[in-house]
Design a protein around this nucleic acid. Structure first.
Lengths: 221, 221
DNA sequence: ACCTGAACACCGTTCAAGT
DNA sequence: ACCTGAACACCGTTCAAGT
């Protein structure tokens, strides 16, 4: 299992193959099938293993809002260390002990906040969905591709002119979008910082939204 | 392109292979490479194509909050019709015309709400991250696997006893989690309805959170 | 400009056979 | 109980060769 997680961290979800894992463990690839059944199950086992890395907050001591925030940041950190994680849990619904331990704490947190019954389920799910979406967008490949594109246009100046012309054409059709892109460029932010700020904003927004619901203060329509 | 989208809708992202696509179009698989370069590019082209299905709200007419809600539901619908979409945009960062058109409208919406500069970028991203995460969890495979598990345990009663014993053991360790699962079962909800309700709750929570920020009414800490 | 066929280097998985 | 090797049915992609 440890070997599998190392391979996943290093080479991603497609970089893990039964043959490579076998090689790493010094035995035939097909030997793996005796232990884990198939690749799907291997991924599920690996992802559950990794959940236990999270240190849970002391909910009664810190209060629901800091606890919720801590949980959100912890999941984000986990997804960051193991880029393949979100992909696995979203395609295979891997619900084992490691994840149960985490979810129990999430329930404790939002129960402490005052959510009950179905509301409690939804309150637990909403921040989790946000973190999941976030983890994807900041996933290795996306960020990597952005950098690769920048590098490409730097290496091929003849293509850059073409790219700029295309961007200008889009700017005419989508003024707000291009204004925002320009502003981002002027702020001189990298992709990673941008993502961190979106995350921080989103966390507080969702916590505010949950607080508003608790106070019966939804603006509705 | 239409053939590729049909194949993707029908068989998912792994069901689309160059060979199958070639067969569907009555030519050699390798002919595809002349037109689209490689599979990654094929997926990017397909995903951008599909964004234009969305009908955009008339923001000034309906106001920011209904417009934002409409956009969120529209994206959810889109991801539901094309289960492979989120997967592609999250792994390849496919930003073409179709997506630009949508994003322009999102910027218009949150600009109308009163967000400016970096706040505007974040306000646009937050709901989008939530929808993305949501689309994953309700993705075809996850839902399918849940049903498959239910069916399996129904078919193999000898294994069901074992599964129940395992669940009870978990219940002792994770009381809140198992209480919630029991309550869900008693409400007699299917997985799909559950997901719809989480989505509805999350949408309003996020809109509330954004409204709170606009009103300078964040509860902070 | 557009398409083909053969070929290469990979996959996951099964299964009979070994110890 | 645990492992091996050969084999099967797939992949994406390249490239010389055709029209």
């Amino acid at each position: 299992m440890r070997a599998a997680i190392e391979l996943l961290d290093a080479e991603g979800i497609d970089g893990l193959s039964m043959r490579k894992l076998g090689q790493k463990l010094g035995s035939a690839a097909t030997a793996m099938y005796w232990h884990v059944g198939n690749k799907e199950n291997l991924l599920i086992l690996a992802s559950d293993e990794v959940w236990s890395e999270i240190t849970l907050p002391d909910v009664p001591a810190v209060g629901w809002r800091p606890a919720a925030r801590e949980l959100m940041y912890a999941v984000r950190g986990l997804c960051d260390r193991h880029r393949w994680l979100v992909r696995v849990i979203t395609t295979y619904y891997a619900a084992g002990e490691g994840m149960a331990r985490f979810q129990e704490c999430a329930y404790e947190t939002f129960d402490a906040a005052g959510f009950r019954d179905a509301d409690l389920d939804w309150a637990v799910s909403t921040p989790f969905m946000f973190v999941t979406g976030m983890a994807f967008m900041s996933g290795s490949e996306v960020a990597g591709i952005k950098e690769r594109a920048d590098q490409e246009s730097a290496e091929q100046p003849e293509k850059e002119a073409e790219a700029i012309a295309q961007i200008n054409a889009l700017a005419a059709k989508y003024p707000r979008l291009s204004a925002s892109m320009e502003a981002q460029a002027q702020r001189g932010q990298g992709f990673a910082e941008q993502v961190d700020e979106v995350f921080a904003f989103g966390v507080e927004t969702i916590l505010d939204g949950l607080a508003a619901r608790l106070a019966g203060r939804s603006d509705a329509v």
